[in-house]
Simulated scan of single mutants.
Amino acid sequence: MGCWSGTPRSSGPTRSTATRSSTPWPRIWGGGLGTEPAEALVAYGFEALGLTEVHATVDARNEASPWLLGRLGFAHVRDVEEDDGGLTRVLTCRNPARGAARGRQ
């Protein structure tokens, strides 16, 4: 269907993960196949790994994924123009349980 990955990265006193979601089949975008893996990946990052943020990248032509990610707490951060001229949207979700602790550091 597509590809999901998580890569823990250390960034000073906080830890975050970069995720990538892509599929070569635009006809399945918006078909409801991303909800369960997205929820599981975010929960794993926050609960099991204790991450402060989870990042996602989405092909700009895929209008369903940013909507889904928004429901999970992601916010649009920026757009990246790819070498082939395509546009990738970058979204970030901050761990609400770790936000207060991060603010005190």
Rank of each mutant, 00 (worst) to 15 (best):
R61G: 08
G30S: 06
L69F: 14
A56S: 09
T92F: 02
T52N: 14
L72M: 11
T23H: 02
T14D: 07
D59Y: 10
N62G: 00
G103K: 13
D59L: 12
R71C: 13
R61C: 01
G99A: 15
R20H: 04
S21D: 04
S11H: 05
Y44S: 06
A100Q: 14
V90H: 04
F46A: 07
V42P: 10
P13C: 03
D79K: 00
P24D: 14
A60D: 10
D59R: 14
Y44G: 01
W4R: 06
D84F: 04
R9N: 02
R94W: 12
A75C: 04
G99R: 15
F74T: 07
A48G: 02
R104L: 11
V58D: 04
T23K: 03
D83V: 02
A38W: 11
S16E: 08
E81C: 00
G31Y: 00
R15L: 07
G70R: 07
L51I: 02
D79E: 05
G99K: 14
S21G: 05
R71P: 09
G34V: 10
E63G: 10
C93R: 10
A64N: 06
R78K: 05
F74K: 09
W25D: 11
R71W: 08
S11G: 06
R89D: 01
A101T: 12
R9E: 03
R102I: 11
R98M: 14
F74Y: 12
G34H: 13
N95P: 09
F46H: 10
R61S: 02
L68V: 08
T88Q: 09
V58K: 08
V54F: 12
E36Y: 07
H55R: 15
D84A: 05
R9Q: 02
P66W: 14
G50M: 09
G6V: 09
R15S: 05
A38H: 12
G2T: 05
Y44C: 06
W67M: 12
R61N: 07
A64L: 06
F46I: 09
R78T: 08
W25F: 09
E53A: 15
D83P: 01
L87A: 00
S10W: 04
D79P: 00
E36N: 08
W25V: 11
P8S: 04
A75N: 06
